[in-house]
Design a protein around this nucleic acid. Structure first.
Lengths: 153, 153
DNA sequence: GTCAGTGCAAAGCTTTTGCAGCGCG
DNA sequence: CGCGCTGCAAAAGCTTTGCACTGAC
C-alpha cells in the first residue's frame, strides 16, 4: 500500500478486461461503479481497504458510493477476480487475484505499514502442504508481522 | 475449533502458570475474569472468537463480561501469551501462543469449518524468507482456503 | 419494459470506551 | 485505601441491507 513494488504494466489491462468480460459472462450487466472499482484495482499493486478505494475514487471525481464499493468487491471476490486479504486491523483489504505478481504481506507491528514480498521456495512449501491436507485448497495467504526497517531503528 | 488436534496435556499447564506469572510480572494484578480466560485458552487447542470464549465461559457458569474478554485478550496479545489469528470472516480469533504445537489454519470456503495443520518444511521456508525481507519478523500466519473433505464431496 | 446496478440512509455486528463499584495487594 | 479489574451500557467503527431510482439491454 505505502510501498508498492515496481509497476508491472503487462497483465494489468488483461486483468481489467478479462474481469469485465467475466462479470458479464456470469450474467451481470456491470455498471459505472463496478467499472470504476475494477479500473482502480487494475492500477494498484497491493491490497487496499474498501474505504481507501472509496476515497481514491472520490478523489478522482468518480461518484461512487461506499456501498457499491463493498458490493463490487463481494462480487469480484465471489468470481475470484479479487482476493480478500486479512492482515489484521479493523478492516479487510482487497487486491486483484493475479497469477503473475503473486505475493504475500509484511505488516509492521509498530506503524501499520504494509509491504509485499514473494518467495519461490515458500510457494513450493505451501503447494506441498496443500496436497497433503484433506482440503481442496484454492487460495492461500501468508502474513508476517514484525518491525519494519524504520521502526526497528 | 470444530476439529481439534489430539489433546496435548504437556505444556498447557505450564502455559497457564507462566502466563499468570508473566502478567503479574508485567505489573498487573490479574482478576477473576483474566484467570477465567487464561484457563479456558489453556484447555483449547485452536483459535476461538471473543464471543465463543464469552459463551463458553458463561456456559461454565463463570460470570465474565464480553468487555473483560476483549480486554484480557488485548493484554495477553500485548504480552505475546496469545496470538491473534485473522482467518477472514467478521471476527478475529485468538489462541495461546505456544512454542510447542505451532500450527496454521485451513478454512473451508463452504461451511466455515476451521482445521489446523503443521509442516516442518513450510516453517523452514518462512524462516528463510523472514531473514531476507527488511523486517524484524516476530510472528507469522498462514491460512489456506478451500473446500474441506465433507464439502468437496 | 425488465431487472441488475446504484446511492443514500438505516440497521447489524464486532470491538472499544466511560464510569461507578469491587477487590486484590 | 489506592489503583487496577470488572460489569454494564453506550459509543464507535466496519460492513450489510432496504428501498426507491436510474440505467443497460
Amino acid at each position: 500500500v505505502r510501498n508498492p513494488p515496481p509497476k508491472m504494466e503487462s497483465g494489468m489491462d488483461s486483468w481489467s478486461t478479462s474481469t469485465i468480460e467475466g462479470v458479464r459472462a456470469a450474467g451481470y450487466r456491470g455498471g459505472a461503479a463496478q467499472r470504476a472499482v475494477v479500473e482502480l484495482l487494475a492500477r494498484e499493486d497491493c491490497c487496499l481497504t474498501a474505504q481507501e478505494i472509496f476515497d481514491s475514487l472520490r478523489a478522482d471525481g468518480r461518484k461512487v458510493s461506499l456501498a457499491s464499493v463493498y458490493r463490487t468487491l463481494e462480487l469480484l471476490s465471489e468470481l475470484s477476480y479479487v482476493q480478500r486479504v486479512d492482515i489484521g486491523g479493523a478492516s479487510a483489504r482487497f487486491e486483484r487475484a493475479a497469477l503473475e505478481d503473486h505475493h504475500h504481506h509484511l505488516v509492521c507491528t509498530d506503524c501499520g505499514r504494509v509491504d509485499a514480498f514473494s518467495d519461490e521456495q515458500l510457494e513450493r512449501a505451501i503447494h506441498g502442504v496443500a496436497s497433503k491436507v484433506g482440503y481442496d485448497v484454492g487460495t492461500h495467504e501468508v502474513v508476517l508481522h514484525g518491525a519494519c526497517a524504520d521502526c526497528a531503528a
